[in-house]
Design a protein around this nucleic acid. Structure first.
Length: 684
DNA sequence: TGGTCGCCAATTTTT
DNA sequence: TTGGCGACCA
């Protein structure tokens, strides 16, 4: 195998290069130095990047000396798979080193943990854990829950994360993005300092820390160059979505060499709320002098009418690289503009069209429903269930956020580090009659008690006295399970032991306990595959499963199901038919984003991303009357204006396939109150 | 009286 | 699923 890949073999001899168009070929075979590939939606970005890897390997670069950074785990998986299919791996070589920024950061931070003052098996807090820790600190700083005007934990976390990722000062970020919190800047600053100190003392890192630490490693005089020299080429996918911190990491990785390839499309930048900025892709040529800029504009995915509509949305944008997609496919019908009376009619319309398409031979899995916010599909999900149409939903409430799953993970963490206050705080509150106060006292006795220094579990006999009598047996069995798991070997055995101890608590704590136990079973089963429970939980934080089905592996693979997804989760994917939901102003663009022109631009790009996922059919659904509840108002209906992005220009490129009837009480403007019917008065 | 538990309303997008 | 508010228990 290796012989076919020795250096010097002419690139044109490789068959896979023949399939590329001239622009793609130029990008794939760019000899070296900084390269920026501006690849519009559906222009074969992944193909080109994979071909480039293959070409570099054919030129003699060892695969493991190529680093491939992607934005999502899904993209990483696909990219590595396709690369593997393209490049016969030379014997004795490991593959390309690929993954998300966060997962590669984890790898390097683990590698240099001691230099960073971390224990070898440090835990990674996921977003929820970080928020919980902040909440704990908020209490300690005297901002009790009842302090209504103080930002709540998820907001605090947003502010913290945004500040760190943008690498700007707290007061700047708050003034710009969270003006209603300005009066609290000083207390927040104190809390955030306490938060970083606490993470230090607990020996844990959060997702943002991973990037901070990696950047510090890259900047280090000894470790930086050593890391850099390990890689001949660094490639970054979706460069439009990197933030300042990530851009710094890329620069740090390329201080001596400038073999760096960035691929992206500023028209698809949709992560500004996470401090990403299209600024970085626009400034790439400044950061890397001598950059070659190549554009891919030939679209292999969508029909021309769909691109016309998408282009009509894109041209509303203010600043971008000049580019316009041209289709390489045969013509097709124009996108359909579906005006519905309300969201329930929208659900009916989608079901009807999905089924109709399937009648005509389009599998359900070739069709997708995309939305701005995950709850936009609530009614549709009900309707799909009622009609027995199978579907899988991506994005939105994720598996790891389910309370009982966090409970078991907390136990996993305690096994690794019995001094983990956060986990104890969580687990103790599952017990009968134990709330935050009792939990706090008990865990103080555990972690700060005299016997604790050596082993918190040793302090258990004293700590359990703080619990009400009813809670003691349950608590004892959890502690017993932790002791047993300690001496057990194999992540699977340990996980099962802990799950068994947790099961009775979960089924008594939650009314739908039985269903939740199934999830725990799957989590324990997944842990069986891992070599180490600590690694398993860290991986889980970095690569959260989208659903419990996802965790169980891909059993649905041969089944047919409709895909429901937030647009953010749909990035990089494509379907033959795409339905976009709830295109009314206030929802899309979301009213929370209506403040600045930048956030409106981002919402517009989001719509552009949604539209360009479609290969042959695109349906844009506009409910005319929407249902939502401004607080305390029972007159919960309102009339929606179509999304401001559906300008006349855009509408001209579409076909209106349905006009909602406006008549009856809707025409009078007098809306019925919510009507409730209950025969309860008969049952006395 | 401190603390827990039950019932109500509301919730953008994600590594 | 979180958080606020009021009822109930030691």
């Amino acid at each position: 195998m290796f012989e076919t890949l020795v250096p010097g073999r002419p690139p044109d001899a490789a068959a896979w290069l023949d399939d590329l168009n001239p622009e793609q070929l130029a990008a794939a075979t760019h000899p070296g130095g900084p390269l920026l590939i501006l690849a519009g939606a559906g222009t074969g970005k992944t193909t080109t990047l994979c071909a480039r890897v293959a070409w570099l390997v054919s030129q003699g670069t060892a695969p493991e000396r190529i680093m491939l950074l992607t934005f999502t785990r899904r993209a990483a998986r696909e990219m590595l798979q396709r690369t593997r299919a393209l490049v016969a791996m030379p014997a004795g070589h490991r593959g390309v080193l690929g993954g998300t920024f966060h997962s590669l950061a984890h790898r390097f931070v683990r590698m240099h943990a001691s230099a960073l003052g971390l224990a070898a098996g440090f835990a990674v807090l996921d977003a929820g854990d970080g928020a919980d820790l902040l909440d704990l600190i908020r209490e300690e700083h005297g901002h009790a829950q009842r302090d209504r005007r103080f930002p709540k934990k998820s907001t605090l976390q947003d502010i913290y994360s945004r500040t760190v990722n943008a690498q700007r000062t707290l007061s700047e970020v708050v003034a710009e993005c969270f003006p209603w919190c300005e009066e609290h800047v000083e207390s927040m600053a104190a809390m955030f300092k306490a938060y970083t100190a606490r993470k230090r003392s607990l020996g844990v890192v959060d997702l943002d820390d991973l990037l901070l630490y990696w950047r510090a490693l890259a900047a280090d005089e000894v470790i930086g160059p050593a890391t850099e020299d390990g890689f001949d080429h660094v490639m970054i996918d979706e460069y439009q979505d990197v933030n300042g911190l990530q851009a710094d990491i890329v620069s740090g990785l390329r201080r001596r060499s400038d073999n760096v390839t960035a691929v992206g499309d500023d028209l698809q930048a949709i992560y500004g709320w996470r401090s990403a900025s299209p600024q970085h892709i626009l400034e790439f040529p400044d950061r890397f002098p001598g950059t070659t800029v190549l554009k891919l504009e030939r679209n292999y995915r969508s029909t021309q009418p769909i691109l016309d509509t998408a282009n009509a949305v894109a041209v509303q944008a203010t600043r971008s690289y000049e580019k316009r997609l041209r289709s390489d496919r045969e013509d097709g019908p124009p996108p359909a503009l579906v005006f519905c009376r309300d969201e329930s009619e929208q659900a009916d319309e989608v079901c009807a069209r999905v089924l109709e398409a399937r009648e005509q031979g389009m599998e359900l899995r070739q069709q997708a429903v995309l939305m701005r916010a995950s709850h936009d599909s609530d009614l549709l999900e009900l309707e799909l269930t009622r009609r027995h149409i199978p579907f899988v939903k991506y994005g939105g409430l994720r598996y790891l956020e389910a309370a009982h799953v966090k409970d078991l993970i907390a136990l996993f963490r305690l096994l690794d580090n019995p001094a983990n206050e956060l986990s104890w705080f969580r687990v103790l509150q599952l017990l009968e009659g134990v709330g935050p106060v009792t939990a706090r006292r008990t865990l103080d006795a555990l972690v700060a008690g005299p016997a604790a220094a050596a082993d918190p579990l040793g302090a258990w006999p004293q700590a359990r006295d703080h619990l009400p009598a009813a809670a003691r047996p349950g608590a004892d069995s959890v502690v017993e399970a932790l002791r047993a798991a300690r001496s057990a070997t194999g992540a699977g055995v340990q996980a099962e032991g802990l799950r068994d101890a947790l099961a009775p608590l979960v089924s008594s704590r939650y009314p739908d306990g039985a269903v939740r136990l199934i999830d725990l079973e799957q989590l324990a089963a997944a842990a069986r595959e891992a070599s180490d429970l600590g690694h398993f939980t860290a991986e889980l934080a970095l690569d959260p499963p989208q659903s419990s089905a996802d965790l169980a592996g891909p059993p649905h693979l041969d089944e047919d199901y409709l895909v429901l997804s937030t647009i953010h989760s749909a990035k990089g994917l494509e379907w033959a038919a795409v339905h976009v939901l709830a295109l009314y102003d206030g929802n899309f663009p979301a009213c929370m984003s209506a403040g600045t022109s930048e956030s409106i631009d981002e919402e517009r790009r989001l719509l552009y991303v949604a539209m360009t996922r479609a290969r042959r059919r695109l349906y844009l659904h506009v409910p005319v009357r929407y249902y939502h509840r401004p607080k305390g108002n029972d007159d919960a209906h309102g009339y929606g204006k179509p999304s401001r992005f559906l300008t006349e220009e855009v509408q001209r490129t579409c076909e209106v396939v349905r006009r909602a009837e406006v008549g009856g009480y809707e025409a009078t403007g007098r809306l019925p109150r919510k009507i409730t019917v209950s025969p309860d008065s008969l049952f006395r």
